[in-house]
Amino acid sequence: MAHADPELLTLLALGEPAPDESTEDHLRTCTECRSELAALREVTAIGRETRAERDLPMPSERVWAGIAAETGQSAEPAPVIALARPRRRWRAFLAVAAAAAIVGAAGSIAVDRITTPVTTEQVLAKTDLARLTAAPGSARGTASVVRTADRTVLRISVDGMPAPDGLYQVWLFDGTATMIPLGVLTNGQTDMPIPDAIDLRTYPVVDVSAQRLGQQEHGTSMLQGKLS
């Protein structure tokens, strides 16, 4: 029998069941396919473990200051320039965190914005906003969906962000392709009305991006979190 198809081995390594008995028979007898599968399983295991490593903190400021002093570098971290310049790789490294947050559009939020009786304010969903790699180590934020007497808002508050070159914009993201701009973020806490037409089960990811003035498309993600 021919060796198992590489796509099939990948699926098996990911834990999907074998499609038929002949595949299982082949794997029992073929050392080559078995060791291939074992290697892919190992990669899968490590890949799954990376989930716990997505939001690693930067060391405290004193570490860079020490390095700069010992090597004669400028101690200035230049956070404002950092906003404007492309940092694709470093973003990519931990932007995995962002990619991970996009999953599960399948709807883990049981938000009923219509039938819930409201007396004062009610928090329907919330999330901490994780710092993405374009943001400085001090950046953090929270977002919650709050139902007030007459409307539903996204209440967002951020802290430790550098002064933007342009502005910060808040988006709701479906995790795959569509981002809905909600509003411009100013300091501290801001309430942004969520239009009734937007189903948060479809757009569960809150994203804060740095935008150049006049930039229409989504800019550089700084903070992100998935409402639940």
Binding site: L56, P59, R87, F93
Partner: peptide, 8 residues
């Protein structure tokens, strides 16, 4: 900036 979190 890219690797300090991983090194830590």
């Amino acid at each position: 900036e890219r690797y300090a979190p991983a090194v830590l």
